[in-house]
């Protein structure tokens, strides 16, 4: 398990990184390396050059600007968990990140890396979709913004063009009175979830006005479940109905940890937990 030979380039700044990326289709951005380096060592990919963006300081900032909480791509999970602003604005992120692998991995793994990699079993992409995050991509022609809902195209497929770098993720602070929920079912703490849910509910006088559900570990990308949300606005939670509706919403894909049936079951259980917690 030694990776094939590759070049290493430490980018001085963002423009420098974009230049190199533009000039070489086989170049790959190295952020925290927690997913990339194992795939190299297992010879699942063989990039020509790794562009290390780890010394670009502007990518390591957490800012509040124009009612957005903005996470630089190179913020580590640990840094975010320890940030006062984040814990005030999105306390749920701390709970969620605590389930991302283990401390050593959270110290190296980055926010931008997780969002950009788009692992369907990862927590952060689902969270970004749920709260309508905006994903900022920088390329040779400047910056563009893609809504998280439009960002994930398929299994490990995203809207990032080959000459672009994900530089930050903007989270709208005002969630319109939405209450947020996160839970997942794993075999062991820190494992990829057999099924996970981030959800939100907006209530008026204890009446549910809006419900959003985004599942992870269930399909080829973060899975929204519009029919189930609609059902829940009209009906009380009922395990069997929810499981059936979820199967209409999501093409549950089995993986090594669980069958598609198991994933549908656990998703329905998670919805039940959410309705109990947020109602």
């Amino acid at each position: 398990m030694k990776s094939p030979a590759f070049s290493y380039y430490q980018a001085k700044d963002l423009a420098d990184a974009i230049n190199i990326k533009k000039s070489d289709d086989d170049a790959v951005i190295l952020a925290g390396g927690q997913s990339l380096l194992p795939t190299l060592n297992m010879r699942l990919s063989s990039p020509s050059v790794l562009i290390d963006i780890g010394s670009i300081n502007e990518l390591k900032k957490i800012k509040v600007e124009d009612s957005y909480l903005i996470m630089g791509a190179m913020c580590s999970h640990s840094q975010i968990m320890n940030n006062k602003e984040v814990n005030e604005k999105f306390p749920i992120l701390n709970k969620l990140l605590a389930q991302v692998a283990h401390p050593a991995i959270r110290n190296k793994g980055t926010h931008g890396g997780s969002i950009a990699y788009g692992d369907p079993a990862a927590e952060l992409p689902a969270f970004a979709v749920l709260v309508n995050a905006e994903i900022i991509l920088s390329g040779p022609d400047g910056e563009r913004t893609v809504s998280a809902k439009e960002f994930y195209k398929g299994l490990f497929e995203t809207a990032i063009n080959s000459d672009e770098i994900l530089t930050s993720v903007k989270y709208p602070i005002n969630q319109n009175g939405m209450k947020l929920f996160f839970d997942e079912v794993t075999r062991r703490h820190g494992d990829y979830a057999m099924a996970g849910l981030v959800g939100s509910i907006k209530q008026n006088n204890k009446i549910n006005e809006e419900i959003n559900l985004v599942f992870f570990g269930t399909g080829d990308r973060p899975n929204e479940a519009p029919k189930t949300c609609e059902y829940l606005l009209k009906n009380e939670y009922n395990y069997s109905d929810i499981k059936d509706t979820l199967k209409n919403d999501i093409d549950f894909a089995s993986d090594i940890s669980s069958s598609s049936d198991m994933k549908a079951h656990l998703s329905a259980i998670l919805v039940g937990r959410m309705m109990k917690e947020l109602n």
């Binding site: 297992m42 075999r187 062991r188 703490h189």
Partner: peptide, 26 residues
Amino acid sequence: YEECIYDEMGNLTNGNMADYLVPMAY
């Protein structure tokens, strides 16, 4: 936790520490 999982062709499908689960401290 532990199981060497083979597919129907006889390939070991979980030969890594992410998919072959060992007991952990937590």
